[in-house]
Simulated assay, not measured.
Amino acid sequence: MTSILVTGGTGTLGSLLTDRLRNNGHEVRVLSRHAQPYAVDLRKGMGLDRLDAAVEGVDVIVHCATSPRGGDDTAAGHLLSAAQRAQVPHLVYISIVGVDRVPLGYYGAKRRVEQLIERAGDSGGPGWTVLRTTQFHDLVLRLVSGAARLPVLPLPSGVSVQPIDTGEVADRLAELAVGAPACRVEDMGGPEVRTLDDLAGAYLRAAGRRRRILPVRMAGKAYAGFRAGGHLTPERAVGKVTFERFLEHRPK
Score class of each variant (00 low, 15 high):
G9D: 08
V92S: 05
D59C: 04
P215F: 10
V216C: 01
Y203C: 08
R119C: 10
L199N: 10
H231Y: 05
F226Q: 02
A237V: 08
A65L: 05
L199T: 09
D138T: 09
L5T: 08
M218D: 01
G239F: 14
Q87R: 15
F246R: 03
R172Y: 15
L232R: 07
V28I: 03
K110Q: 07
E192M: 04
R209G: 03
G189P: 06
T12L: 15
G25W: 01
S123A: 10
S3W: 12
S157I: 00
V113A: 05
L17E: 12
V113E: 06
V193E: 05
F246S: 09
Y223W: 14
T66N: 15
S81M: 11
P191G: 00
R101A: 04
A182M: 03
A147V: 10
G8E: 08
C183I: 00
D100P: 08
L199Q: 02
Y38H: 11
Q162T: 08
D198W: 12
E56V: 13
A35W: 14
T129L: 03
W128S: 01
F136Q: 07
Q84G: 09
K44C: 08
G208N: 02
L176R: 05
F246M: 10
S3V: 12
G121R: 12
A219C: 08
A83M: 10
V60Y: 00
K252L: 07
R101F: 02
G158L: 12
D198F: 03
G11C: 14
D138I: 03
V113S: 07
T12A: 14
G229H: 00
E248D: 08
Y38G: 11
E186F: 07
K110E: 00
A207V: 00
L31V: 06
D187Y: 03
